[in-house]
Design a protein around this nucleic acid. Structure first.
Lengths: 110, 110
DNA sequence: TATCATACCTCGACATTCGATGTATGCCAA
DNA sequence: TTGGCATACATCGAATGTCGAGGTATGATA
């Protein structure tokens, strides 16, 4: 049982990050804000979860980083999807759909 | 990133178990079979995941166990929901809906 | 000048899943 | 009768991921 709502995040954070980067490069701080905004505050990713996720994805070759200047004029590390990352995104998206469909079947049928 | 599809299970297994017991007492082995059946083989719970889950839920007072005889005539531990467990089930079900809605928002809007 | 938002990061505690392994019984087929 | 399979319980250690707390630094705003 998840300690709280946040824990449901398990296994899904990387997919969210990939999916967000699919529509353009962003830096970490921005990704966190974006997730919170689009999810209407339901999902709030702490930095202690987000940065490990970004480093994980980078290490696995799904995203790559480039230092640049943010909208506010500060140094920031912008991440963008690689070709592998794009492929991975749709794979994981399919798995997510398949999985939630399966869970919903059980929730309906008991 | 989950190693495989199974890992998506994270944080959801307890909900599935609760929801299944909501329609009547079952024993562990039966719960595993049932999940696999209803989910059309998408979700396969190993015993190394299921039994810890059952013991967790029992310790927290959401289910209680009783030894009985299974359909095949063997000794088996039947679990049934407690009042707390029923309440918990609908709480967790709501959280699940809220969470998947939020994730789907991000998957749609990038 | 102090505090807040931006922006990066790491660390340790904690929980969970997973595969492997172990026990035991009953049934069926060779 | 013996070997294997399905039933049914359980535990263990490795691996993974999340989380909260903490740390650094800068620029803007009050």
């Amino acid at each position: 049982m998840p300690k709280n709502k946040q824990d449901l995040l398990q296994g899904t954070l990387d997919l969210l990050v990939l999916r967000i980067l699919n529509s353009g490069a962003r830096h970490g701080y921005d990704i966190a804000k974006h997730i919170q905004l689009v999810s209407k505050d339901v999902i709030q990713v702490g930095q202690g979860s987000l940065y490990p996720s970004l480093h994980r994805l980078e290490k696995r070759g799904y995203i790559k980083a480039k230092w640049d200047i943010s909208e506010t004029g500060r140094r920031a590390k912008f991440y963008q999807l690689t070709a592998d990352g794009k492929k991975k995104t749709s794979e994981e998206e399919n798995k997510w759909q398949e999985f939630t469909t399966a869970v919903n079947l059980i929730l309906k049928n008991g």
